[in-house]
């Protein structure tokens, strides 16, 4: 049976992890590769690296990082953040990433999804969709860009459907309402998207407890769940989370 996936997300700036990672057992807490290896060893099913490097000049550090991650870990990983062109994607995939995610650039130029999926294959194109609650939208959710700062007037479900028809292989849905709150995933948003498209959906934003994961898999119909700080700060331990989910009848991959 296909397992529900648990995906830690690492924010990376200039090749180093940021946002308060405090692993005592890492030689270098800022080393994204060491952290990636640790997660891979403890049973993470996949990893996402989000490049938050501010300057174009430092983008090269991400390529080098992708290369070392590919050398060291044996689970799939996605790279997102600032991807705007075919060349960006070619560079990241050639360095060894399995998938890339596009966000704002795809909203501004939806044909980017067609171009990327035709050239590199749907399976490696993930749409990162950031949404907020907006009762004026048909689905109740609006697409936002620029890290949530800019509303687009585009209904989140219609954007998800459009991205699917343009050829993306997976959608990473982040609730900007829930993100950072640790109050639980946006279950309704996740279900609205996942229940109405036929490609896998990764739920993101709001993870606080193990029960939140169970809820987003069962009620939210998510295929995978992504979180950052609950893993980075040891609030949730991945083997323990998987054991909990398994006891609750959710198919998960045990081991590593």
């Amino acid at each position: 049976m296909l397992a529900k996936r648990i995906i830690p997300c690492l924010d990376v700036k200039d090749g180093r992890t940021v946002k308060g990672v405090n692993f005592v057992d890492l030689r270098d807490a800022g080393s994204a590769v060491d952290l990636a290896e640790l997660y891979s060893r403890t049973g993470a099913d996949e990893l996402v690296f989000l490049d938050i490097t501010a300057t174009v000049e430092n983008r090269g550090t991400m390529t080098a990082l992708v290369r070392s991650v590919s050398d060291r870990i044996s689970i799939p990983f996605t790279v997102g953040g600032g991807i705007r062109s075919e060349d960006d994607v070619d560079r990241i995939l050639s360095a060894g990433a399995d998938k890339i995610s596009v966000n704002s650039a795809a909203v501004r130029s939806p044909s980017l999804i067609d171009t990327l999926s035709r050239r590199f294959g749907s399976q490696c194109v993930v749409l990162a969709l950031d949404a907020v609650t907006n009762p004026a939208m048909a689905s109740g959710y609006e697409t936002v860009v620029d890290g949530g700062r800019t509303p687009t007037g585009i209904d989140a479900l219609s954007w998800a459907r459009e991205a699917e028809s343009r050829g993306c292989g997976e959608i990473l849905v982040t609730s900007m309402d829930a993100d950072g709150t640790k109050g639980g995933f946006a279950v309704d948003l996740t279900r609205v998207i996942s229940g109405n498209i036929s490609i896998p959906v990764i739920a993101s934003g709001g993870a606080g407890t193990m029960a939140d994961f169970r809820e987003v898999f069962v009620e939210g119909m998510a295929d995978a769940a992504l979180a950052a700080s609950v893993f980075h700060f040891h609030e949730i331990d991945i083997p323990e989370l998987k054991e909990y989910l398994r006891e609750n009848g959710i198919p998960v991959r045990m081991g590593r």
Partner: peptide, 30 residues
């Protein structure tokens, strides 16, 4: 959902490749 993406179990194993793999271990598919 299509693609079949993620970790799924393999069973009815035979042949040299699966010498050290147990029934129902997970492999990554896309």
């Amino acid at each position: 959902k299509i693609p079949h993406m993620g970790w799924n179990t393999v069973s009815s194993l035979s042949g040299a490749l699966f010498r050290d793999v147990k029934e129902d271990e997970y492999m990554y598919f896309v």
